[in-house]
């Protein structure tokens, strides 16, 4: 039981590492949101599930924390993306098409 829980926590921290790497490597704000704030959600799911395996008494609190993070995380990344587009943040030159720009005109 303990080993399974700690392995899950380790997998979660590796996902954190990769998503932090994504925040550094991606070329513009939108792609940073893609790799950064959302891959961390899966990492949090793994870490908190691992802690629940290690310490079953905390499960109610961990479930509330997990549901809270799953509900709020997409909202914050959506708000940041909309603010970025509103402020005409530069997009990476690889971007092929921007329907939102066409819709505004």
């Amino acid at each position: 039981m303990e080993i399974v829980g700690s392995i899950l926590v380790l997998i979660g921290s590796l996902i954190f590492f990769l998503s932090a790497l994504g925040v550094i490597r991606m070329p513009d704000v939108y792609n940073r949101i893609q790799t950064g704030t959302k891959a961390t959600t899966l990492g949090t799911i793994f870490v908190l599930t691992g802690i629940a395996f290690l310490s079953p008494g905390w499960i109610p609190k961990l479930v509330i924390l997990l549901i809270f993070i799953i509900l709020t995380n997409p909202v914050s990344s959506h708000v940041v993306a909309r603010a970025a587009h509103f402020n005409k943040e530069p997009m990476s030159p690889l971007t092929t098409c921007d329907k939102m720009d066409e819709a505004e005109e």
């Binding site: 954190f16 908190l48 008494g57 993070i69």
Partner: peptide, 30 residues
């Protein structure tokens, strides 16, 4: 830009929540 920093802050805070949870188990403090 500022919004890049906001994204970085968001990532940092979500990882910090998990670190706090790991430390809570290591110190056995609910």
């Amino acid at each position: 830009s500022v919004l890049d920093r906001v994204v970085a802050f968001d990532v940092i805070s979500i990882i910090a929540i998990s670190v706090i949870a790991i430390l809570a188990y290591m110190f056995r403090r609910a």
